[in-house]
């Protein structure tokens, strides 16, 4: 299966690229939070889509809004105000009642977080926790347990049958993350949102978890939205990459193209700033400054104070979206009409 992928994943012009049937469509999503002093926009007019079975990565640094976006899709954070449209499989998620949303989360969308321990109840057995989503939906105890076992097997948890009755603290970090994945996958969702799922793990364990995710996503035709700060793990996993900076998606493209021909100065900077284990370079090119806090964003293009290519227009006018000849969706004054 792997070889097959390599052969077909060449560079294909954007116009003829086959897009999978749409599963999630996010339109002009903005996320605001009211603080004591002011209203702060965490995410600003973000639009993107995910097709069935497609693996999309959302890459960003702290404060970029990537995690808030993920939470917004699941409507997990009640402190923020959402505006825009989020269509999932024909349903407008933002108009659902809390109860309908809960059903949606259990059955059709799953989510995993960075810290597996925070998603696990220390006093409940692994089996019960994985089966819980099904039990809530009224699946019989026996069947729920069987399906929990199947998912754990699918995730290659060894001796899963014996370990159904053990507790989270008896598992290693990587195993816990698999259990959390099992909880998200047992309801057979169409979309899995994974927020920094491997950040707390050692590289070898990280690789195993990503391999599993890759395999399951292909087998089940499961769409995955991978949220991370690490471009390295994205490269081997995602079909498409979106780069988020300071509340906006500044670049989006097929993974192969994004890594080969990054268009936005931020994407380019990020790729050059990360040291690589496979080549020795004399000196890293660094991006000056630090990402801004959401409450203190620069005017115009929020990246302009750190940008090598900043022009007069960048300080005052927020760049619109342009599609470059390479098919990248970019927000930068270097491209497009201006």
């Amino acid at each position: 299966m792997g070889v097959d992928t390599i052969l077909t994943d060449g560079i294909v012009p954007a116009q003829v690229r086959r897009r999978p049937e749409s599963l999630l469509q996010v339109d002009q999503l903005s996320i605001d939070i009211a603080t004591r002093d002011a209203n702060v926009r965490l995410v600003d007019n973000v639009s993107f889509g995910i097709g069935r079975g497609e693996r999309v990565a959302l890459v960003g640094e702290s404060g970029s809004g990537k995690s808030v976006t993920a939470q917004a899709l699941m409507r997990l954070n009640s402190r923020v105000k959402l505006s825009g449209r989020v269509q999932f499989d024909g349903t407008d998620l933002l108009s659902l009642s809390p109860r309908q949303m809960t059903a949606m989360r259990g059955q059709r969308m799953g989510m995993v977080f960075q810290d597996p321990m925070s998603s696990l109840d220390p006093l409940m057995t692994i089996g019960d926790q994985v089966a819980e989503t099904l039990r809530i939906r009224g699946v019989s105890k026996r069947e729920a347990r069987q399906r929990a076992l199947d998912v754990l097997d699918e995730l290659k948890v060894e001796r899963a049958a014996e370990r159904l009755d053990s507790f989270p603290h008896e598992f290693s970090g990587g195993m816990r993350q698999r259990v959390v994945l099992a909880m998200a996958l047992v309801g057979e969702p169409h979309l899995l949102i994974a927020d920094e799922p491997t950040t707390a793990l050692d590289v070898r364990v990280q690789e195993r978890v990503l391999d599993l995710l890759d395999e399951i996503s292909r087998r089940r035709s499961l769409a995955v939205l991978l949220i991370t700060h690490d471009l390295g793990i994205v490269a081997g996993f995602a079909d498409r990459v979106m780069v988020m900076y300071s509340g906006r998606i500044v670049e989006e493209n097929e993974a192969t193209l994004l890594f080969a021909e990054p268009q936005h100065p931020y994407t380019r900077g990020l790729l050059e700033a990360v040291p690589r284990a496979d080549i020795t370079v004399d000196r890293l090119r660094s991006i000056s400054g630090a990402p801004p806090a959401p409450a203190a964003r620069p005017s115009g293009c929020t990246f302009h104070p750190r940008c090598d290519h900043a022009m007069a227009v960048c300080t005052s006018v927020e760049p619109g979206e342009t599609i470059t000849p390479l098919g990248a969706r970019v927000r930068c004054h270097l491209y497009g009409e201006g």
């Binding site: 994943d9 590289v203 390295g232 490269a235 081997g236 890594f259």
Partner: peptide, 13 residues
């Protein structure tokens, strides 16, 4: 992880 899709895919394969 290597930030190069070709390397990543080849390794996974």
């Amino acid at each position: 992880p290597i930030p190069d899709p070709a390397v990543g895919r080849a390794r996974r394969a």
